[in-house]
Amino acid sequence: MRAITVVPGAADRTRLEERPEPPEDDGSVLVEGHLLGICGTDVDIVRHGYGTPPPGRPRLVPGHESLGRVRDAPPDSGLATGDAVAGIVRRPDPVPCPPCAVGDWDFCRNGRYTERGIKERDGFAAERWRADPEFVVRLDPALGDSGVLVEPASVLAKAWEQVTRITARSSARPRRTLVTGAGPIGLLAALLSTQHGMETHVLDLDDSGPKPTLVRDLGGFFHTGDVRDLGLVPDVVIECTGHGPLVFELCGAVAPNAVICLTGVSSGSHSVRVSADELNKEMVLENRVIFGTVNAARRHYEQAAAALLRADRPWLERLLTRRVPMGDFTDALDKGAEDIKGVVDLRA
């Protein structure tokens, strides 16, 4: 079968190659890959050396945003031939730590987890892949190609689960969300915000391309400029840029009791002068919370699939702006002005 392989940090060594069929010890469910979503993590792996191949091997099959169809599954798996599915990325550590032991591998305590296409385990950039049933999520066929968005949406489902838990500490219910960044993660964050009944605002650097219309079509409000000049006082912030200085600006621009969720990781080296004492005073006296979130457990994939199914199908399809064959995988790493989300067609 064909698979894309990379040497992390060596972009010129990315290639499409023939590989053996996925081994049965990868899992009892055999899946035919259809689409692979591309995100910033893939860029970091290919170009900046993030990620780790399986032990003893120099090359990694990338890809953690998957959509496929079941070719074979055990009778008691809850899956049947032809089912549309997405693969779960993280695998619990072998010890396991207390969170991994109960399925909360996204909160692994000892770091010995593995991740498909990222950390010590091959990903989904292959014509076929295997997984055990507990790491395969069946999707409603009505999602169509939009099912490839389940993995990134799972990160936001987890974020909103945590936001809901934290805001429950107060009798005052949050009403307004600010999402910073209008890339795929930001737009999915805005989608889930509207589904939570929030007045939703999205801030981005650029108002060209399809992003403003996509936000407005959700019933949200699109903004550019400095966060301090928006005239907004959000109760919830979903930060999707990973831009460190912006995080500090947000801490002083939110409502009392506000919650700021960080979903982005910066690869830059920006520095900013901050009054730590003033920041500490604001956070304490205003009951504010700032937290980070990464990855997702199985329930978050299921929540994401349900959220996408509630969304407008044409709106979701407009997020998939670029499709390339397997041989052009590296081309999908670069975005044009009109691009939101690039995907690789694993059948082409």
Rank of each mutant, 00 (worst) to 15 (best):
V46W: 13
D76T: 09
A296T: 00
T177M: 15
A296K: 07
Q162K: 13
L192A: 11
G68Y: 07
T14K: 02
D277G: 10
L187C: 10
H48M: 12
Q162R: 12
E134R: 15
G183W: 11
R121D: 13
F291H: 09
E199F: 03
A304W: 00
G220M: 00
F222P: 03
T5R: 14
R323G: 09
E151A: 07
T114C: 00
A11K: 14
G292A: 02
A307S: 15
K281Y: 12
P55Y: 05
M1V: 06
R116M: 01
P141I: 07
A305C: 10
D72G: 12
T200D: 06
R273L: 15
V136P: 02
L143P: 00
V284P: 02
P256N: 10
P74Q: 03
D226K: 06
L191K: 09
A337M: 07
N287L: 02
R323W: 00
V89M: 11
R138Y: 01
D104K: 14
G33Q: 12
A337L: 08
I88A: 13
K341C: 05
V272R: 07
L191F: 10
P75R: 15
D229Y: 03
P23L: 09
T321F: 11
V294Q: 11
D42I: 04
C108G: 03
R310H: 14
D328Y: 02
V85E: 09
P54G: 06
V324C: 10
L308Q: 08
Q303I: 01
P174I: 01
R228G: 15
T180R: 08
R2H: 12
H270D: 15
R322I: 08
E282S: 13
S28F: 12
L316N: 06
N280D: 04
G82E: 02
R59G: 07
L188V: 00
G56P: 14
G242F: 01
V227P: 00
G336R: 12
T164Q: 14
W129M: 03
G51K: 01
R322M: 08
L192M: 15
V31N: 09
F222L: 01
V237T: 04
D25G: 08
H201S: 07
